[in-house]
Each structure stands twice: as C-alpha cells, then as structure tokens.
Nucleic acid binder design. Structure first.
Lengths: 201, 201
DNA sequence: GTCTATACCATGATAGAC
DNA sequence: GTCTATCATGGTATAGAC
C-alpha cells in the first residue's frame, strides 16, 4: 500500500513483531473462539510476556479486532482482484471458495459469532465497520449483476443472498465433515459450494 | 412418558422447580451462549439463590446439558409425530421449519457452537449422545427416502444433507435478517427454507 | 432445599525494574 | 519495549446455618 521506502530498522522490527502477534491471535481465535482464547496463550504462542502484548494492543478486544480487520482487508483485496469480465455468479462462487479455503488452512470465519463478546467490540470499531461496509457494497453489486444475468433467483433480496453467502463461509458443516475424515478438503468445499448455490433438491 | 399416577406433592414441586430452572437456562443460553451465561443470572432469573441451583444440577455444564437434552427430545417427538405418508422431502422441510420457529421464539439452536466449552461436555454426556444418534438415524432414513423419491440430489451423501439441514437450523442469517426488521418472521423462515433446499440459483 | 457468606481460581490488565 | 511479579475482577462452586 504505502510506498515510503525508508522505515527505520526499529519500525520494521515492530511491524514484524505485531504481525507475529496477529498471526497467533488469528490461529487461536479460529481454534477456540474469542471467549475461550486467553491472553496468556497468545503471549506464550508468540513467545513474549503478556505485559509486552499490552504494549502493542491495549485490550483483548482490540487485538482480536486487529485480526478480524486483517481478514476483512484480505477479503477485500481478493474481491477487488477478481476478473471483472467473468460471469458475476462465478465471481461470487470464487469468493466463497476462497473464504472456505482460508478457513481450511486455519483461518478465521468471515463473520464473528453472535454470542461472543467480540461482536459488540467490533460494532464500535469504525475501522472494522468501514471495511465491512465496503465489502458489503462490492458483494451487493456482484449479486445484483448476477441476478440481472439470470444466475440468481429473482425472488431473493440482495440482502438475503449476501447473508446466506457470509453464513455459508462460517458453516459448521465444514468442521463436521472434516472430523469425519471421509472426504478430502476439496470435496468438502465442493459440497458446501454446491449446496449453497444449488440447494439440496 | 411414565404412567405412574402418584407422585408425592414434594416430587411434583421438585419437577416444577427444575422445569423453571431449565426454562431460564434455555432462554439465557439462546441469548448469550454458554460461555457468557453465568450461574448468577440463571439463579436471579429463576428467583432462587445460586447455591440452590447447585442442589439441582451439579455444574454449569450439567445444567446446560439438561436444556440441550430437552430440546433434542422435543425434536425427536416432533419427528416421530410427522405424517409418515407425506412425501419425505416435505417432512424434512417440516423439521427445519419447526426448528427455525422454535429458535424464533427464543429457543436454542439445535447444535452447540464449535468453539464453546459446552461442546466437550455434551460429547461426554451419554444421554445426550444417545438422543442425538436416535435423531440422526430418523433423519437419515428420511433423507434416503427423499432421495429415492427423486426429491434430493443423488450426488450428495446422506451425511452432507444431514449436516446441511442441522447447520441451517442454527444459521446466523436468521439473526441478521431479524435485526433488520424488514421482513416478517414468516418471510425470514421462508427465505431460509427455500435457500436451503432450492439454493441461490 | 433454601438462604448468606465465602473459598478459590482463572484471567484481563498493570506496576515498576531494566 | 521487554521482563517478573502482582493486582483486581468476576465467576464457579461450597460451607454451614436455618
């Protein structure tokens, strides 16, 4: 993004360190969720003392929000990088597939769960909300384009389609099918994609 | 179920009290989730002291399990009461619709969230597991019948269909659409049912 | 079996030396 | 900015009187 060439060594070090912290947070958040993740664990995972964590991030909420914001920005970058001449419906499928692949590799679900302390914190985080609204707008345009092209049912409001795709990216079915070890990761993703867009019937 | 006619007054009182406790647990569990629900809240909601709670249920996990088991047993009763001559696909839709209506009225989602302390406790609760396996079997039979009748895609394993329906009964889309207040409860349920079985396309 | 009061512990957050 | 050591809070669970 920024093109300033000269960051002091100390500044670079700081960025690397903070990335490592967010990485650990990301992983723990995906594995245990916000409420069950402890700051002790994050610190231990990064290999620093807990007090040092608080020099970088003022609270558990802020730390988790940083991880969620990074995910959202990656998602935005992916959506902006989609081939614009591709059929809109294929672009939408590509977004969901990408989100599911991220989750398979230990990433976070796109949306925060409802019953978690994190949700309220995120709603008060303007940076997060801004990114989310940007994503909603981009996705909304794709959905309307796909509908105009006859690839999405006309009786479904844009909003319903949008939430349905978001929800599918967090679908617990992924975890259930994976613990079975009966299907490959690719198959599981195919199942989720095809049931989301094509339905069960 | 049991047909013994004579329960002492004290025993009846006990049952009523425990039902009230499970009611409160159910409601709080639906609203805040397992980790954020506190025993103080449950006690306050019922109108008894926290210590009294522990005379009825030995732990928070056991209390939450009781609520989940009651939900499972209600679900089983509903499935067993379905008209057997109805097309299997309609019976499946009926189950999902019923589960969504329960949730709308402040009930619990059918499955526990992954990242919650409750999940592990439930996996060690034989009573819960037994009920869950019973339900899985009944639903599995319905799914296979529906597939034989050509109403379910032949390329989807029974397991995938089963989990997809379960997951849909816990779908966060319901909450998101409801906070919008743009659609009636019936409309929201219709959206969820039709996207689940019919897909987005 | 209900209450009040409390033990006990996990965990988010800080103090203060280096 | 990192550490060790500590505080403060809140929440599960229990003791003991009635």
């Amino acid at each position: 993004m920024s093109t300033e060439p000269k960051l002091s060594f100390k500044q670079q070090q700081l960025i690397v360190r903070e990335n490592a912290i967010v990485d650990a947070t990301n992983s723990l958040l995906a594995k245990k969720g916000f409420d069950l993740m402890t700051m002790d664990e994050v610190a231990a995972d990064v290999g620093i003392a807990k007090a040092s964590l608080y020099k970088h991030f003022p609270s558990k909420e802020a730390l988790a929000a940083a991880a969620m914001i990074r995910l959202l920005e990656n998602t935005l970058a992916f959506v902006r990088g989609l081939a614009p001449d591709q059929p809109a419906i294929d672009q939408l499928k590509g977004v969901l597939q990408w989100a599911l692949e991220v989750r398979m590799k230990g990433g976070l679900p796109t949306l925060p769960a409802e019953n978690t302390g994190l949700r309220e914190a995120l709603l008060n985080n303007t940076r997060y909300i801004t990114r989310l609204m940007d994503l909603n707008e981009l996705m909304g345009e794709l959905i309307e384009k796909a509908r105009a092209q006859g690839a999405i049912r006309a009786d479904l409001p844009t909003e319903v389609v949008l939430f349905t795709i978001y929800a599918r990216s967090c679908d617990p079915t992924l975890d259930y099918l994976r613990t079975n070890e009966q299907y490959s990761d690719e198959q599981v993703i195919d199942f989720l994609l095809s049931t989301c867009f094509g339905g069960l019937q």
